[in-house]
Simulated assay, not measured.
Amino acid sequence: MSFQVSVGATGYAGWKILQRTRDAQISAMSREPAIVRSRAYVAEKLPSIASAEQLVGDYRLLQVTLGAYGLEVDQKNKFFVQKVLAEGVTGEGAFSARLSDKRYAAMAREFAFDTDTPNTTDAAFADKLFSQYLDREFERRVGETDQNLRLALNAQREVANLAARPSSDNTKWYEILGNTPLRKVFEGAFGFGSNYARLPIDRQLAEFKNKAQSMFGSSEVASFSKPENLDKLIKTYLVRSQLTGGVTQSPYSAALSILKG
């Protein structure tokens, strides 16, 4: 029987409960027999994988890999995933670098199949990969109760990672604008409707940066490295989502379809 994640409440109250209980609940989930078997399988098999073709050919490894990056919807798109992984990110015109969703580039970079020694040969990489998978699986189960909270958990991780990157500020904002689940959290927190997506991209960028400046005193994505700013973003999103009906409404359907496996 699968471990049932306990949310306890909806909206920001549920968020505070999750923040207190998340580690304990993930620990309990990790003891689930199916999870234990998957961890053992990854630890045994992944270090012997030397190519993208081998990885894609192993259903269980592919399932965990895609789950670790929130890309479960690509389970059947084996040729696509293999191309992403095989070309990596270092070669000129690498496939993953041309995709707007940067999760693919992150996956390709971390596996490093385009190098002489892919990271799969390092036993520590299997542990790291499975830890990421557990985090995402926890979020997926939270979403079975409250999809707003799933989007918030996704944003908590992704925004923090994005804020810490050395990329230019505009590049970071364009990643937010191009990542549907992440964009919906910002749109919700900023009070923007889905019609903003119809504006020219440079106008969208200006609107998002102006709103960030007014709400957080800075238009830079790096400002979300401050816990108080990230918490304010998520709190505002959750409160406004409760007031408006949130992700149960049609503007959010695209974001949720991406997050669902």
Rank of each mutant, 00 (worst) to 15 (best):
A50G: 15
Y12R: 12
R240I: 00
F216R: 02
S218Q: 04
F224T: 08
T171C: 01
L199S: 03
V221A: 06
A43L: 12
G70F: 01
E53Q: 14
A34L: 04
G91C: 14
D202W: 08
E207F: 15
T248F: 09
N161W: 15
I49R: 09
A24N: 14
I35M: 14
I234F: 10
N148R: 13
A206C: 13
A43D: 14
L199P: 07
G246T: 09
F192P: 01
T236C: 05
E158D: 06
G261M: 06
A222C: 06
R31F: 04
A126H: 09
G93H: 10
M215D: 03
A43I: 07
Y237S: 03
F216P: 07
P227M: 02
A34C: 00
Y69N: 08
E110F: 02
Q147F: 09
R103N: 11
T244W: 06
L230N: 10
D101W: 03
V89Y: 13
S51W: 02
P181K: 08
E92W: 12
F138G: 05
F186W: 04
K16N: 10
E144M: 02
A28Y: 03
S96M: 09
G88R: 04
T117D: 01
T180F: 05
G91K: 07
D122A: 05
I258L: 11
S6K: 12
E92T: 12
N148K: 11
K78I: 05
R140G: 00
G188P: 04
Y237T: 06
P200N: 04
G217C: 11
A106Q: 15
F125Y: 09
I26A: 04
A24M: 04
L46S: 02
L71K: 03
R22N: 13
F95R: 08
Y69H: 00
E220Y: 07
S168V: 07
K102F: 06
W173I: 12
D231V: 14
P251F: 00
P118K: 01
K184W: 10
E92I: 07
D23H: 07
G14H: 04
G8K: 10
N210Q: 15
L134V: 01
L61P: 08
Y69M: 01
Q213I: 07
S100M: 10
I176S: 08
K83Y: 00
F125G: 03
Q25D: 01
K226L: 07
P166N: 08
G143S: 04
G193A: 03
N195W: 02
G193V: 09
N170W: 06
Q82N: 15
R165S: 15
A160M: 07
D202A: 15
A254H: 00
T121G: 13
T145D: 10
